[in-house]
Every structure is written in structure tokens, then in C-alpha cells.
Simulated assay, not measured.
Amino acid sequence: MSRTLTVGLDGSAVSMAAVHWAAAEASRRGTGLRLLHVWDIRPDVHSPLALTPAEQDRRSDWIPRRAADQVRAAHPALEVATSYVCGDPVEVLCEAAAESELLVIGSRGLGTVAGYVLGSVSLAVAAHAPRPVVFVRGPKEDPGSPGGPAAPQPPGTVVVGVDLTSGSDAVLAFALAHADRHGAAVRAVHSWSPPPFHGAESTPAGHDLTAEVAAAKEAALAEVLEPWRRKFPAVPVTAQCSLGRPAHELVDAAQDAGLVVVGRSARRSPLGAHLGAVAHAVLHHCLAPVAVVPHADV
């Protein structure tokens, strides 16, 4: 795997927001940056008018070159490569992710990512990319503007969702390393629901049992976080363990986040995408950039 961050872009303001986020991240990591434009193989997805092969080449090559000019102006020391590929967007982007430290895609949220409908291309990439994928929210004020370097933003807390029933090492490693690079704090969020049979709030016994489960969950979360606190001693880490719906609690906790990190199982299935309800909700509703990190189930 090369030391490169890859951005999938289409020339829109949304994808340009992803470009500038990735350029800043590549500079912090000391990696190169690859700007990748995917020309969809379907003939009717770009324009009702047929384009000649030469026109397609000029259009496809112009988009990453234009983005590269903006990146080089803002980050003159950054090594920037451009490329475009004609092919299936999901396959091309997943292959690019496999060759990169990180894949970054622009996200309009509540509907589309990098110009594609969430639930098709973007959802498939999030669910099947073998490496972490970051979805960056586009600018609000002018969706049709060409985009440009965003104003410097404070690092913001890195909010990470922790699932105590499956592998969390890859997710926490990504979150803590990002926070360490950016001088940010980490908030580890775990939410749980009581077993439905004991009547958690309806009887004294149910209330006591809920309190016992809460204490056990808090202890388990603290145990999971302890080695990461030792590995990244400069990163402040707080734990949020609460009774509630995981997706709802994580979205609420991420209101002022600089980055939200969620995991998804790295298992492969021929039956389609398996992203998970929590990651799906976060991608739809969080305003902050969202990192989806594949992990192995335990």
C-alpha cells in the first residue's frame, strides 16, 4: 500500500470540499494526494447529449487538473497526482481505497455523496471499501459554486462510536491517531438498551437491574479504552456510556464534532452492502466529516 490519500471527485463544490479536507490531512500525515475522477461507464448518466471519446477525455482530465491547481496553490509542498478512470464507480473507488491509506469522498448528506445517491454508489463504497473512507460534508451557502479552500476550523472533538460486542481496535486506533495528529480530544460513545423482559423502569427490581447493567457497561467501556489512553497519553479521552438508541445518541454527541468515527464489519457478502444501522444513520445526519472504518468481528 502506498503512502497516499485518494479523493474521489466530480468537480462539484461538494467534492472540492473533500479535496481540500484531504489535502490538509495529507499534509499532516506527510503523504501524497491522488485526485481521482471516475467517468461512469453508463452512457446516459452525465448528459443527454452523446460525447465523443476525445470530448470525454478532455472533460475527465480537466476536473482533476483544475482541482490540483487549487491544492498546489494552498499546499505547495504537497505531492499531488491526478488521474481519471472510465469504469464502474464502486469498483474503481474500492480499488483506489485498497491502494491508499484513506479514501475521501464529498458528501451532500441526507441524500447524496460525490454526486451519487446515498444507498447506491456511496453506500456500496462505505460498506465494501477495504480501507477507511471519510465522507466530507460540502458547503451550505452555494451548492453550485466551484469551491475553494475552506477557512481554518478548530480541530473539534473526535467522536467515536464503540461497539462492545464486536472488534473496536481498528475504530479506536483510527480515532485516537487522528486526534493525536490534530491536537484534539476524543469522546468515546457507547449506548445500550435494557433487556425488554425485566421492566427496567416499571419496578424497583427492574430499576436495580438496569443500574447494574449500566455499571457493567461503564466498566467494560473503560477497560476497552485503557490501552488506547496509554498509547496516546497526550489525547484527552472521555467516555460516554448511556441508556438509549446507539444511532440517536451518537448523532446527538457529534453535533460539534470535528470528525465522527464509526465501524462496520469487514466481512464480505455477495448479497450486497452491510453497513449497519448506526453507520447509515451517522452518514445521513451528521454535519461533521464521517470516517467509516472496517474492522474484523471478534
Results as ranks from 00 to 15, higher is better:
residue 1 M to P: 12
residue 3 R to M: 12
residue 6 T to H: 04
residue 9 L to A: 04
residue 10 D to M: 12
residue 13 A to S: 15
residue 15 S to C: 02
residue 19 V to Q: 10
residue 30 G to K: 15
residue 30 G to Q: 10
residue 31 T to R: 00
residue 33 L to Y: 08
residue 33 L to R: 06
residue 34 R to M: 08
residue 35 L to Y: 07
residue 38 V to K: 06
residue 47 S to T: 15
residue 48 P to N: 08
residue 52 T to M: 07
residue 56 Q to L: 07
residue 60 S to F: 11
residue 60 S to C: 13
residue 61 D to L: 11
residue 67 A to Q: 07
residue 71 V to D: 11
residue 77 A to D: 15
residue 77 A to Y: 02
residue 80 V to H: 03
residue 88 D to G: 14
residue 90 V to F: 00
residue 90 V to R: 13
residue 95 E to T: 15
residue 99 E to K: 11
residue 110 L to W: 10
residue 113 V to W: 14
residue 116 Y to L: 06
residue 121 V to H: 10
residue 122 S to T: 06
residue 122 S to N: 06
residue 123 L to S: 11
residue 127 A to V: 11
residue 130 P to A: 12
residue 130 P to E: 08
residue 132 P to I: 08
residue 145 S to A: 15
residue 146 P to V: 01
residue 146 P to A: 14
residue 148 G to V: 01
residue 149 P to H: 15
residue 151 A to K: 12
residue 151 A to P: 13
residue 154 P to N: 08
residue 158 V to K: 01
residue 159 V to S: 01
residue 166 S to K: 07
residue 166 S to E: 09
residue 168 S to H: 12
residue 174 F to S: 09
residue 182 H to M: 05
residue 191 S to G: 11
residue 193 S to Y: 01
residue 195 P to H: 09
residue 199 G to R: 02
residue 201 E to H: 14
residue 203 T to W: 14
residue 204 P to G: 13
residue 206 G to I: 06
residue 209 L to E: 10
residue 212 E to P: 02
residue 212 E to D: 07
residue 220 A to R: 11
residue 221 L to W: 04
residue 221 L to R: 00
residue 221 L to Y: 05
residue 224 V to F: 13
residue 226 E to D: 09
residue 228 W to C: 06
residue 231 K to C: 04
residue 234 A to K: 13
residue 240 Q to R: 15
residue 244 G to T: 03
residue 244 G to Y: 03
residue 246 P to I: 03
residue 246 P to F: 01
residue 247 A to V: 00
residue 248 H to E: 09
residue 249 E to N: 03
residue 249 E to M: 03
residue 250 L to E: 01
residue 257 A to W: 01
residue 259 L to Y: 01
residue 260 V to E: 04
residue 262 V to Y: 06
residue 263 G to A: 02
residue 271 L to F: 15
residue 273 A to Q: 05
residue 275 L to K: 04
residue 275 L to S: 09
residue 281 A to T: 15
residue 288 A to Y: 03
residue 289 P to K: 09
residue 289 P to L: 11
residue 294 P to V: 10
residue 295 H to V: 09
residue 297 D to P: 02
